[in-house]
Amino acid sequence: MSIIRIAGICGSLRRESCNQQLILRAQQLCAEQISEARLDIIDWSQLPVYNQDLENDPPKSVLKFKEEIANSDAILFATPGPLKNAIDWASRAKIGDHGDVFSGKPVAIIGAGPGSYPGSSGSGRAQLILRQTLVALNMIAINSPSVMLTGAYEAFKEDGSLKNGVMEEKIVKLLKELVILHKRLKSTV
């Protein structure tokens, strides 16, 4: 049985961001509880600002980024953050040897927000906007469970785990659904 490779792309480039902590926890949970999948977080911090003039001779960082996505079976985005730049580079079909690296891939979204007041959405709005983009990229998104962490500054234990065990269960369920969707899509090809 081959391992299903999930590419983790965090919207925030800051090492200590709530979304970086959340995707790192998802990576740990995947390693601990989903034997048939591996979550590798892609570092896209070296991508230049998207510039169409560079498409014919893209920087090596762009080619490496696209290759990592092309070699993955599924995508996990952690948002909000400046994902648009990364998506712009990866979605250009004529850059590199991999063509359109997003089309047809299963995708899931997680996100964290600092607010813990009534009505805070824990990245819900950012996830909604990203979902609209995923439609244009021809990606197949997992809709449930929703992983929208509120009060993220206070949500993590010192070891990186979440204080809320139900939220951790939702992350594992979301990753399992991503694996199931990948298998379903692969069986129809």
Rank of each mutant, 00 (worst) to 15 (best):
D88P: 01
K183F: 07
N85G: 04
P82W: 11
N138E: 15
D88A: 04
L181P: 06
R125F: 15
V166G: 08
I3V: 12
L54I: 12
M167I: 13
I4D: 01
I129R: 15
E67K: 15
K170V: 00
A78E: 01
S120V: 11
K173I: 04
Y153C: 08
P59Q: 14
E55S: 05
E177S: 10
K84F: 10
V49W: 09
E67T: 15
P114F: 08
V179P: 04
S146V: 15
D73Q: 00
R25P: 13
E168W: 03
I171V: 00
S2G: 11
I87F: 02
P80T: 01
A86H: 04
A74W: 02
C30P: 15
I6Q: 09
A93L: 07
S161D: 08
V189G: 06
G151V: 15
K84P: 07
L63M: 05
E168K: 04
D159N: 04
D53L: 02
I41N: 12
R92E: 01
K183Y: 08
S103A: 05
R184T: 14
V147N: 02
N138V: 15
L162M: 09
A108R: 07
K66D: 09
V49P: 14
S116G: 12
K105S: 01
G111P: 14
C30M: 09
N51W: 06
K163R: 03
K173L: 07
D100E: 11
G81C: 02
I140V: 14
S61T: 08
Y153L: 08
I4S: 05
S61K: 00
A155R: 01
K157A: 06
E169P: 02
V62G: 02
Y153N: 15
A70S: 05
A26L: 05
D159I: 01
V107W: 08
M1N: 09
T79I: 14
V101K: 12
W44V: 09
G165L: 10
Q20C: 10
G124D: 13
K60S: 05
S12G: 09
T79V: 14
G111L: 00
D159E: 04
L76Y: 01
A141L: 05
D57L: 12
I87E: 02
L134E: 12
V166P: 01
V172D: 01
S45V: 06
I129W: 13
V172P: 11
L76H: 11
L128K: 14
Q132L: 00
M139G: 10
I3E: 12
N19W: 11
A78Y: 03
E158A: 07
Q27P: 10
L134P: 00
G111N: 03
S187H: 11
L181M: 04
M167C: 12
H98G: 02
I75P: 06
T150V: 11
R38C: 13
E168S: 09
V172K: 03
A37P: 02
G99A: 05
